[in-house]
Design a protein around this nucleic acid. Structure first.
Lengths: 187, 187
DNA sequence: CTATCCATTTATCATATGATAAATAATCAG
DNA sequence: CTGATTATTTATCATATGATAAATGGATAG
């Protein structure tokens, strides 16, 4: 849990008591490459933190596999549109490299909010940061060409491009695999 | 403030004391059409609630005016990427119809979080809902044609299309004004 | 009411990306 | 190691949207 608490410290430090409370509702899971951590159609009741490995959120659009986002070590991953609404998610979380993950029970977490305002605050900040990323991503999608988006990803997250099959990256960038290959090929 | 507290009730009801505290850090402002409520380059230190009128968030991309989003009556509007980070915003908020707006001082609001966990919770939920909308919007932008996006907006928010100049809607949809006109014209 | 300015539409041409298919390359099971 | 499956690249053609310019329509100030 050391990694997790270090991550928390980047947002707001927790009392020992609060840390223990979170430890009490978390468990460490190991998952193999290509397995779904959470399937499509289930309501998101877990917040995950990645100790090791890489994951993606994906869904099907007209039968085609679309990657919604990636998460790597020392980051939280959750399907917020389900976690925050209680509605089933049309998205799944898949593991792309054998992974070690901390699974935090969301219902219990939300209950902890009542007794530990510091925990509510911490997760508010974590998700606010993710909210900001999402807002900024819209600008990237909307007003840059596919090539610019690819190059931006190369800059910001080169390891993702190295670790993840290109087909997943293509749909994340909003283009076909063929277009991505064309963009990479030119020059 | 009646409208505002009714809006709050949709998320979580506040105690009278908390309501008074919020009232104490809010003021009612009246703004004319086409005025900027907040200019580009300033750090967002206010959360706005629209009693009457319509507003948009916009910015300049390569010198071109881009609409990031709209907000109408009984909704909150804020530049979250600045509000949550404390960094200056590259975006502005402009009023598109003479408006009556409740301006909530964000720094004072964040201080109220310490003494009123219920207020922190309320705003957490408000912004979580906005986070979910943003996440869902990415799917719309990424995987629908301009025509589909226009028709979706017609369905979901026909009043916005009626009340707002088309040029603003075009950039919101991620297309040029000329393309939007073409889409509207066909048939 | 008129003149000016701004918003919208229409037209033409250029281009990035999609769709499809086929060729290579890489990965994996046995 | 071999064959089979999956991922990636390359090629061709079609099309949605962009860029630009010009025409039309609507709003507003005086």
């Amino acid at each position: 849990m050391k990694q997790l608490f270090e991550y928390f410290n980047r947002f707001s430090p927790l009392s020992d008591e609060a840390k223990e409370a979170i430890e009490g509702i978390s468990k460490l899971v190991h998952i193999q490459k290509n397995k779904d951590l959470q399937p499509i159609g289930h309501t998101c009741k877990t917040v995950y933190f990645i100790n090791k490995g890489i994951a993606r959120i994906y869904y099907y659009k007209d039968g085609i596999d679309i990657t919604d986002g990636f998460a790597t070590e020392n980051n939280v991953i959750a399907r917020v549109e389900s976690l925050f609404t209680g509605k089933p998610s049309r998205k799944a979380i898949q593991i792309l490299e054998d992974a070690e993950i901390v699974a935090i029970d969301a219902n219990k977490l939300f209950k902890l909010y009542d007794s530990y305002p510091e925990i509510e605050r911490l997760f508010r900040k974590i998700f606010e940061a993710s909210h900001v990323e999402t807002v900024n991503r819209i600008e990237g999608i909307q007003f840059h060409t596919a090539e610019e988006r690819y190059k931006a990803l190369l800059e910001e997250a080169p390891t993702i491009i190295q670790r993840v099959p290109l087909k997943y990256i293509a749909s994340y960038l909003g283009i076909t695999q063929v277009s991505l290959s064309r963009i990479r090929g030119q020059r």
